[in-house]
């Protein structure tokens, strides 16, 4: 937070847009609201949910929302419900209410850039999307705890099909909190709905203000929702595939939707030594034991090899002498 532009307080949709357009969209960005004093004094409930896990375009956003347990009725008056079951207008409306209730409700979002997702999934020690998600959720809980929120109970939408496994993982990290991991938590617990709305609204607006660093003049209406089935998204991937570099970095290169288009539209790329020295098992130096029993006269022609200095220096003979 060494920069003035990082210090905007988001208490309206306009502020959210301003904040998001200041961020470098190839990097992750993190925002945490002011912590209401009540949340430091009273026991609080926390909800965590994600938006934009599936799409091939744009960031994945993890959201957290919290409020004092005894004030949680306020969420119902906002009509917090599963963000996917609400219209865009309704979500924006609830978000405005949430972020302007600065005395009671606090929230934070972790915007994970598409470039970060691609780089993680395509790194040498493959860091899966689930691992990225877990890191983000854990980071959000830590940030909120460090900011002084009196955490009592955390509600999380499950990751993968085994809520129990995720729950015990989180309990292990945070033994002092009550933790509930559940399927469809976003429609069961209003505090998770609130988190899911913060995440979803942030993701949608991140795409609305997306500025291509490649200088492409397109808006979110042109590239669509980012879901692989969206015809606009499909058209975008095909039309804006660069034969050398692939796609602009709004695209998650690690999605099969993206790699399929690359195979069709872009030049083949062969990476250097990704699987080092795996091919040596069949080398002529590995002599089969049976060969010693063969009654053939093998011309014992020893191939002269160069000193390893030459191979280390990447030097090879181009002419025989």
């Amino acid at each position: 937070m060494d920069n003035l532009k990082d210090c905007i307080d988001i208490n309206s949709l306009e502020n959210l847009n301003t904040h998001l357009s200041y961020q470098n969209n190839s990097e992750n960005s993190f925002y945490i609201s002011k912590i209401p004093d009540l949340c430091k004094e009273k026991l609080c409930i926390l909800g965590i949910d994600e938006a934009g896990r599936g799409p091939v375009l744009g960031p994945m956003v993890y959201g957290i929302a919290f409020c004092p347990l005894e004030e949680s009725e306020i969420l119902k008056t906002f009509e917090c419900a599963d963000s996917k079951a609400l219209t865009e207008e309704k979500r924006d409306d609830i978000f405005s209410k949430l972020c302007s209730s600065t005395e009671i409700v606090g929230w934070a979002v972790d915007v994970i850039s598409p470039n970060y997702i691609s780089n993680s999934m395509l790194s040498r020690t493959k860091h899966s999307l689930n691992a990225v998600s877990t890191d983000s959720a854990v980071g959000l809980i830590r940030a909120v705890a460090n900011a002084g929120v009196n955490i009592d109970h955390i509600y999380v939408d499950t990751l993968g099909s085994k809520p129990e496994k995720y729950q015990s993982f989180l309990l292990n990290l945070f033994p002092n909190y009550k933790i509930t991991v559940a399927k469809k938590a976003d429609s069961t617990y209003p505090i998770v709905s609130a988190a899911s709305i913060c995440a979803k609204v942030t993701r949608d607006h991140a795409l609305q203000v997306w500025k291509f660093q490649e200088g492409i003049e397109l808006t979110h209406k042109d590239f669509g929702s980012g879901y692989p089935g969206d015809p606009n998204t499909k058209k975008f991937l095909k039309n804006y595939c660069n034969p050398i570099f692939g796609f602009p970095q709004i695209v998650r290169f690690s999605w099969s939707t993206a790699t399929n288009v690359l195979e069709q539209e872009a030049y083949d790329v062969e990476w250097e030594n990704t699987e080092e020295d795996h091919k040596d098992s069949e080398s002529p130096n590995n002599v089969s034991i049976k060969s010693f029993f063969k009654m053939v006269e093998k011309p014992a022609k020893k191939k002269r090899t160069q000193h390893q200095f030459f191979s280390q220096m990447c030097l090879s003979r181009t002419t025989e002498f």
Partner: peptide, 26 residues
Amino acid sequence: AEVSTYFKPYIKVNDSNYTSSFRGYP
């Protein structure tokens, strides 16, 4: 190749090394 459009904007310096990305690969 449009290096200035697709590659250079994403080059970042950290310590004595640089980082960037090509087709999603770090």
